[in-house]
């Protein structure tokens, strides 16, 4: 049968398009640069644990977790989010599939979801590793501590990934993703409004640190989850046809 005789295909459905976008993002994430970033993150955690345990086992878990959430989670998530979009603008990143007829919005949603899930999984791994390596006598039970740190890490990384993906809508080659990273580093730890908006302040609150705008821990969790969901949806909507 000649290919030109093939009937006109039906429009690809939302679920299928999201799966396509996620597949493409997964193929971009599972590459050497991302693996290198993850490996560096793991190495930093090990080094930090060794240093903190030498300084004293009391409170070592908190100090290692603080370093992990301040430095490693944002940077590795940044690498993952950038890889998911091929280090390009989000609209350009969805084009290799959208050109074949899938909706840009749906492909973008799949791409962002893949970035969020991958970042959350890696952050949870980092958090668990930090707790397990730095855990000492007099600390809370290991399992409970690891579980709590894991979901805080996953939630924080999801919010970071959403922020970076949203930033990738702007500037050439998606360099707008640097804006939330820089703002988070500069102002995210404050106890003011920006501290309540960006993930850093809310993560610190969930880990037992100072709360921005006197937010409760459930409120910080809601801010992180809300920013992850809303920014992901908003970014994909901005990629619509």
């Amino acid at each position: 049968m000649r290919d030109t005789d093939v009937a006109a295909p039906a429009q690809v459905r939302l679920g299928a398009a999201i799966r396509l976008g996620a597949s493409a993002a997964r193929a971009r994430i599972f590459r050497r640069p991302t693996a290198l970033a993850v490996f560096l993150g793991l190495a930093l955690i090990v080094v930090a644990t060794v240093i903190e345990r030498r300084a004293g086992s009391a409170g070592a878990v908190d100090r290692v977790l603080g370093g992990t959430f301040r430095l490693i989670v944002p940077l590795v998530t940044f690498a993952v989010a950038a890889a998911a979009t091929g280090h390009d603008r989000l609209r350009e990143a969805v084009w290799p599939l959208a050109r074949y007829g899938a909706s840009r919005r749906d492909i973008a949603l799949g791409t962002l979801l893949a970035a969020v899930v991958a970042s959350a999984a890696l952050a949870a791994l980092f958090a668990v590793l930090s707790v397990v390596l730095a855990h000492g006598s007099g600390e809370p039970p290991l399992l409970r501590d690891a579980f709590q740190s894991a979901w805080i890490g996953a939630l924080t990384a999801s919010a970071y990934a959403a922020w970076f993906s949203f930033g990738a809508l702007f500037l050439r080659r998606g360099r707008g993703r640097w804006i939330p990273l820089v703002l988070d580093i500069l102002f995210g730890a404050s106890t003011g409004l920006l501290g309540a908006v960006f993930p850093r302040g809310n993560a610190a609150n969930l880990l037992g640190g100072a709360a921005a705008l006197q937010l409760s821990q459930p409120a910080s969790s809601a801010v992180l989850a809300g920013s992850a969901v809303l920014l992901t949806l908003f970014a994909s909507l901005l990629c619509r046809e």
Partner: peptide
């Protein structure tokens, strides 16, 4: 600009699915 995939065959499958070919 082929669809990102581990192999050429997988990239073609992604393209065909994006076209709506079952």
């Amino acid at each position: 600009r082929l669809p990102p995939a581990p192999t050429v065959g997988a990239a073609i499958r992604l393209a065909l699915e994006a076209r709506g070919e079952v």
